[in-house]
Design a protein around this nucleic acid. Structure first.
Lengths: 123, 123
DNA sequence: CTTATATTTCGATAATAATGGAAATATGGA
DNA sequence: TCCATATTTCCATTATTATCGAAATATAAG
């Protein structure tokens, strides 16, 4: 994954409506949801919804399949997986930085096992 | 994590320069990097760099600690961890959707074990 | 106290993104 | 064919974000 692709994915998700759409689709699974159902759930005007759906689809986070008069959108889980790995590539100098996700970014080197200084969070 | 917070984190990461900064800091670990070093690595004008650093810090993805004349920025790994979990909350209807990250979103219910239809990716 | 270095704030400008009404397109059913 | 439904495209408007020079602030060193 290239940096610019990753930034596009993140920017696509970094909007209230699109993130809501994405999460609905994550929960809907492979089957997906039709545009109409999504719009109904989120109360978005058709044009606005379509704008966000095509934004998400153009970047590659979701894809649609036509079925009769409806278009069912689903998330591409593989893209998310790759995105997560990219974000934490060579992370945390080999330490376990992510309790919930476990070993995520380990795709590459994990070099630079340097002793780190204090890093408490100030005001 | 609230939806709006998550959207802010993602929007913050959804910009070439900020994502570059974030990844530098991920790789730098707890010790972090000074603003100057970051700016040098990425070739950003001081004002631009500062704009992005405070954007990232304001949202909470990174934090700075002053040390002598320098300010060292580091990522807050816990926030990222929570963000990943939020993105995949109740994901994929119990299936293993994320090979690299393993069981990520499992914080909540994992209900709706519905049989899903085909979802091949069309043009 | 003066100078040098590190970083931020200010302010103006430029660029990009979001919104939604209205019209267009596509699909299926009567 | 004609109508209803689902979704998208077009277009204009509004809102938000990014950029960076110049000035301000902060910290340390001579």
């Amino acid at each position: 994954m290239e940096l610019l692709n990753a930034a596009e994915y993140l920017a696509a998700l970094g909007h209230e409506s699109r993130l809501s759409i994405f999460r609905l689709l994550v929960q809907a699974g492979e089957e997906g949801l039709s545009a109409g159902v999504i719009g109904e759930q989120l109360g978005l005007a058709p044009a606005t919804l379509s704008f966000h759906l095509s934004h998400l689809a153009r970047t590659g986070l979701i894809f649609g399949r036509q079925q009769s008069r409806f278009i069912f959108y689903s998330v591409d889980y593989a893209v998310i997986d790759t995105l997560f790995a990219f974000l934490l590539e060579d992370c945390c100098q080999g330490k376990a930085c992510l309790p919930k996700t476990g070993a995520v970014g380990g795709a590459k080197s994990r070099r630079r096992m340097v002793r780190a200084g204090a890093a408490g969070r100030p005001a």
